[in-house]
Simulated assay, not measured.
Amino acid sequence: MAVSIMVPNQIIPDLAASYAAADRWVAANLLPYLPRTRVKYLLVGNEVLSDGSIAASTWTRIVPAMENLHRNLRARRVKLGTTLAMDALVTGAFPRPPSAAAFRPDIAESVMRPLLRFLEGTNSYYFVDAYTYFVWAGSNGTVPLDYALLQPATRARYVDPGTGLTYTNLLDEMLDAVGAAISKLGHGGVRIAIAETGWPNGGDYDQIGANVRNAAVYNRNLAARMARNPGTPARPGARMPVFVFSLYNENLKPGPGTERHWGIYYANGTAVYPVDLTGRRPLWAYPPLPAPENDTPYKGPIWCVLAAHAGRKLNETAVGDALTYACGQGNGTCDAIQPGGECFQPNTGAAHASYK
């Protein structure tokens, strides 16, 4: 099994500063596992260009860090890259038409041009995190669900007015938008790899379309499509490494409910749904899936009720953390349980977590 490993964002400046620091990192974190582990990719940072707080300290140091690491790994056939979200483009996750896409002006010359030059010179990949789920969920119904799920039988089509190319799924649009931005900087030969893609199998009440049925359909269609090696309309036949996010539901991960529900397996190791990631299993050969229950926005009343567990002590820390997250969204949800609010008393975590 080929694997990819990642350099943490926070140490990129140190690796860029000296060959010695890069050599020490490789010696401690990579060499002990070779050649028993087939490390194919070393990704220097995760969505670094999405974090404006490290722009000054880290953005322009990505390529120098990659160059220092590459010196050590040149003979080991480990490709270097960095993962970038769709927000590296001016128009973000849904750049339509794809042919009009371009990189953000704050990174185009200072970061992207040297990065693409490095990737082209080392025959590596531009690694993109491409999630059709987020585009569909935020489209207010303008993107058909089947189009986002890569359904082969969908009737939805989009024709790029700039190229005349016809698109039958949202993922191809996103990938060709990245390709167009790459070409605009004069490095159209750089190959694209999908560092992350997938669909959540569950989530909060207001996170539409996050269910087992859609997650299974997306990943099955993705595997079947990539097994055929179709490329994209703008890059037909292009071979593309793909990483599915994720292997397990991360049941302790903070944030919205979808953050804990991207896995093919539950945290205990049982399958959420069957999927053949080789793409060889015909779609009709899978067992029936549960019907989706949240493909349209929930319009009913909602309130929080703290789950009662008889005989078990309340985890005040966990409840407090959950309240801090829920009340930090800036939408007035928790006004009633703030000091002076009509539901502030009794002033306990259990009471504040259960009100309407």
Rank of each mutant, 00 (worst) to 15 (best):
N249H: 07
A177V: 05
L175M: 05
P288C: 02
T166H: 03
N46P: 10
S99F: 07
L116I: 10
A21K: 15
A156R: 00
A55T: 09
D146T: 13
T278A: 04
A318S: 13
K40H: 13
G92Q: 08
L145P: 01
F103W: 08
G237Q: 08
L80N: 04
P105I: 01
A224V: 12
D23W: 05
I62N: 06
E316C: 07
V319D: 07
Q338L: 14
C327I: 12
M66T: 11
R235E: 00
L84S: 08
Y131C: 04
T296H: 11
Y19R: 13
F94P: 00
S183T: 15
C343P: 00
V128W: 04
V305D: 12
Q345T: 12
E293G: 15
T324E: 09
S53Y: 05
G255W: 13
D160P: 02
H187N: 09
F94C: 12
S124C: 06
G121K: 10
V159M: 11
L89I: 03
T324W: 06
R220P: 03
I11W: 01
Y158L: 14
V111I: 07
A336G: 01
A85Q: 12
G279S: 08
N251S: 13
G162H: 09
Y147C: 06
N229P: 00
Q345P: 00
Q338A: 14
T333A: 14
E47N: 09
A2F: 08
P256Q: 11
C327P: 07
G255P: 12
D204T: 11
Y41F: 15
G255A: 10
L43Y: 00
A65F: 03
Y131N: 06
S57M: 00
N169K: 02
N68H: 15
G198H: 04
L170P: 01
H187R: 14
A65W: 02
A137R: 15
F103T: 05
P64T: 14
D87Y: 01
N249C: 05
D106H: 05
G186H: 13
G332D: 08
P282S: 10
D23G: 15
P144R: 07
N249T: 08
H309D: 02
L175E: 05
R96P: 00
G340V: 08
K79S: 13
T83M: 09
G179A: 14
T163D: 09
C327Y: 10
A310I: 01
I208G: 04
N68K: 14
A56L: 11
R117E: 15
N294E: 02
L89M: 10
C327A: 10
Y298K: 06
D206Q: 14
I11N: 01
D23E: 15
K79E: 11
G162E: 08
G255N: 13
D129Q: 13
